[in-house]
C-alpha cells in the first residue's frame, strides 16, 4: 500500500509577542506546527537567539568569549558588541551581580547599567534578574520605569513575585513579562492564568517553563515543553499559547562538563570547547521541543545555532 502523508494541522497557533521597538523589534512565537515540522505546514516561525551579557562584565568567562569582546570595557560597550554577534536577534542583560548572596549590587547601580546598555544597543533588550525573587521584584520595578518605552522582556515573574513583577513590568510600564516555573506543566499554565487575571494580556507574556543543561534532568524539561506545545496546539489551550524563551547559557556554563579545567580532566579535552558543545546541544534540543527563543553566551554557539536554524527553515 502506498504511504499516504497526512499533514498534522491545527486550528490554533502560538501567540506572537513583540519585543523592542521600531525597525529593530523582534517577534517571538507565531508557530502553527510543532517545531521545524515544515512538512506539515508552511509558516513564518523562526526561533530567535539572544546574547547574554553580564553586569559583571566578561572577566569571569572563557578566553574565547573575552577575546571576542576584546577592548570592550564597560557593560554598555560589551552589550554593543554583543548586539553585533552574527545571528543575534536581541541582547539579554543578566544582573548576576544583583544577587544579595553575591555582589548584591544596588537597584540604583543596576538601573544605571541598564540605561547605559539601552543607550548603546538598538536591538531589543531582555532583562534577567538575580534569581532572588524579592530582589528581582524591586529591581525590575526600577529598571522597568527607567526603560519605559523600550518594550523590553523581563525574566521573570515567578509564583512568589508575579503580582509585583506583573504589575510593574507589564501593567505600569508596558514591557513584556516572562513567566517562569520550574519544570511543572500545571504550574506553567497556572502562572499564565494568574498573570492574565492580574491584567497582563496574553500577548504580553513569554513563558520560561524551566531550563536545564543537557544531562541534568533535561528529559523532564523536554517532556514538559513537548506537552506545553502539544496542549497549546492540539487542545487549543489559550493559557499555554504564549511563546517560550529558554535561558540556555544560564545553565550550561555552570555544569562540570563546561567548568572543569583540562588539567583536572585531560581526557575530556579543552574546557571551552566542551562549554560550547554543551551550550549548542542544549539549545538545539530546546528548540526542537518548543523554545521560540534561546539565550546563549559564546559567539561560536550563537553562530552555530543560528546557521542550524537557517539551514532547517531556509
Amino acid at each position: 500500500m502506498p504511504f499516504k502523508r497526512t499533514p498534522q494541522t491545527f486550528n490554533s497557533s502560538i501567540k506572537t509577542v513583540k519585543i523592542g521597538t521600531g525597525d529593530h523589534a523582534v517577534e517571538l512565537g507565531g508557530a502553527t506546527t510543532f517545531p521545524f515540522y515544515t512538512f506539515d505546514s508552511q509558516s513564518n516561525w523562526v526561533p530567535k537567539i539572544g546574547v547574554e551579557v553580564s553586569d559583571l562584565g566578561v572577566g569571569h568567562w572563557p578566553a574565547g568569549i573575552r577575546e571576542y569582546y576584546d577592548c570592550a570595557g564597560s557593560v554598555a560597550e560589551i552589550a554593543r558588541k554583543a548586539s553585533q554577534v552574527k545571528g543575534a536577534d536581541f541582547v539579554c542583560l543578566h544582573f548576576e551581580g544583583a544577587d544579595p548572596n553575591g555582589h548584591d549590587r544596588s537597584a540604583e547601580e543596576c538601573v544605571q547599567i541598564a540605561c547605559e546598555v539601552a543607550e548603546a544597543v538598538e536591538v531589543p533588550l531582555v532583562i534577567a534578574g538575580s534569581k532572588n525573587t524579592e530582589k528581582d521584584a524591586h529591581l525590575f520595578e526600577k529598571i522597568a520605569r527607567a526603560l519605559h518605552g523600550r518594550n523590553a522582556l523581563f525574566l521573570s515573574a515567578k509564583e512568589e513575585n508575579y503580582k509585583a513583577v506583573g504589575a510593574a513590568v507589564g501593567l505600569a510600564y508596558g514591557h513584556k513579562v516572562g513567566a517562569e516555573s520550574s519544570v511543572d506543566i500545571n504550574l506553567a499554565k497556572q502562572l499564565n492564568i494568574l498573570l492574565n487575571q492580574l491584567g497582563v494580556s496574553t500577548e504580553s507574556i513569554v513563558m520560561d517553563p524551566g531550563s536545564a543543561a543537557a544531562g541534568y534532568g533535561f528529559e523532564y524539561l523536554v517532556s514538559t515543553m513537548d506537552r506545553v506545545r502539544s496542549a497549546a496546539l492540539s487542545q487549543n489551550d489559550a493559557m499555554l499559547q504564549m511563546p517560550i524563551i529558554t535561558p540556555v547559557s544560564f545553565e550550561t556554563w555552570n555544569v562540570k562538563e563546561s567548568v572543569l579545567p583540562e588539567e583536572d580532566m585531560p581526557q575530556w579535552g579543552p574546557a571551552e570547547e566542551r562549554g560550547v558543545h554543551m551550550e549548542v546541544v542544549t539549545a538545539v534540543a530546546c528548540l526542537a521541543s518548543g523554545s521560540d527563543a534561546v539565550i546563549l553566551r559564546h559567539p561560536r554557539s550563537i553562530e552555530t545555532v543560528s546557521s542550524l536554524i537557517r539551514a532547517l527553515l531556509g
Binding site: 506543566i185 500545571n186 499554565k189 497556572q190 492564568i193 494568574l194 487575571q197 487542545q235 493559557m239
Partner: peptide, 12 residues
C-alpha cells in the same frame, strides 16, 4: 485529559 490541569481551571 481533555484540558491541562491548573489550580485555577474552574475560573477559565
Amino acid at each position: 485529559n481533555n484540558t491541562l490541569y491548573a489550580d485555577s481551571y474552574l475560573e477559565l
